[in-house]
Design a protein around this nucleic acid. Structure first.
Lengths: 210, 210
DNA sequence: CTCCTTGTTATACGATCGTATAACAAGGTG
DNA sequence: CACCTTGTTATACGATCGTATAACAAGGAG
């Protein structure tokens, strides 16, 4: 009657998915866009096209693009943390082995996935301008350094030293990671891993700093 | 006659500047925008407003925004390289002093300027998506590593080892730099410098890699 | 003073941005 | 089978994006 039946024709068919699944699909699409096209190429339409849904659906599950990007950062961060925790758990009981496992996990699959590195790099560039991203970044790195300090402490490093050492180790790992991401041709993950271990050995053997 | 004299009133007055000066002003404005608002907040209008000129003027001096950003990367890169070169020149003739001067220059003014670090971080995020930026980045890091290898060679390091060592040093410096940029509260430039020197000492004392 | 060149501004155009809204359809419930 | 809820699509809106173009004014040449 009042409704025009003509309009039915152009409407695309769709299937209803569980909320968790849709959210995850959007998060995965966001990570993929950030990795492939960078921050500038990651828009509502780009993300939703990648996820295979209509642009309007994003706001049904998230407060907006920025919120989705932040949520993606949280998800990626958590997955990385779980990978590290699993590596430590699989390393056995020897403190030094556990520490080395934690550090070298950064240079093994699934962390060495180029797409993951590229996504991470995009997040770095957002830390300075996006308050939410900055908050997540701060928490993440605080937790990472905390884990590192615990593992260093288990290797009989004085707690006063573990702090700076954790920072230096984090910096080296991030720097190697950055290098791998920006120009993978000059460098292999195995080489990066070997250098990190070597630096670690040095710090454990000669704990005095300065 | 045919021209409507009414239109004169709304036109802003301006002064003609030398081409070099205008180009430099636009480059400086671009760097400032990248540092303060990130890639997403760096647009033609933003840049030109910062430079105090009309948006249309950008294309009078550059092929487009992307070209201006690339030119800005070149300019910043060159200025950093000159700073490093000056530090080495001022360090005297002792090879080890020269090497340390080159590495620690990254953690002294003017390199530690937060705005410079933030700008650099924005460029990193563009390497993956912008071909011009990637090209400049490749050349820059190749030159940086080349300088480092020469300085290491002067310290009697075997040339076969200087390559990987240069990469590792670059990674550590970049990682410390990244940390300083993303979260300056956990870290001082002096601490970063001390850690880099320590790593350098280790590498020079025990040159065998693996 | 007058003309001419051109650096500069102002404005317009199409594309794309994030978001809002209403129509629609899918899938369960009675 | 009819109804209802709501996940999903389609479309629209204002803002901003990069760029193109034409009017204008600044400053030197004659």
């Amino acid at each position: 009657m009042g409704v025009n039946p003509m309009l039915n024709q152009g409407r695309a068919s769709f299937t209803r998915e569980p909320a968790d699944q849709r959210r995850q699909a959007l998060i995965d699409a966001t990570a993929a866009c950030l990795a492939e096209k960078g921050v500038a190429g990651t828009s509502v339409r780009t993300i939703c096209a990648r996820a295979g849904v209509s642009p309007g659906l994003l706001r049904h599950y998230f407060a907006g693009v920025d919120a989705l990007v932040a949520e993606t950062y949280r998800e990626v961060t958590q997955r990385v943390a779980e990978t590290f925790a699993a590596a430590v758990a699989a390393a056995g009981d020897v403190p030094r082995d556990r520490l080395i496992a934690y550090v070298t996990a950064s240079f093994k699959p699934p962390i060495t996935d180029p797409s993951l590195l590229a996504t991470w790099l995009a997040f770095w560039s957002l830390v300075k301008t996006d308050a939410d991203i900055a908050k997540i970044h701060g928490e993440t790195y605080c937790a990472y350094r905390g884990d590192l300090e615990d593992l260093l402490g288990a290797c009989d490093m004085a707690s006063a030293e573990a702090g700076p050492v954790a920072i230096a180790l984090t910096a080296l790992v991030d720097g190697l990671w950055l290098e791998l991401s920006l120009d993978p041709t000059t460098f292999t993950p195995e080489q990066a891993s070997a250098m990190a271990v070597r630096w670690l050995d040095t710090l454990l053997e000669r704990p005095a700093f300065g």
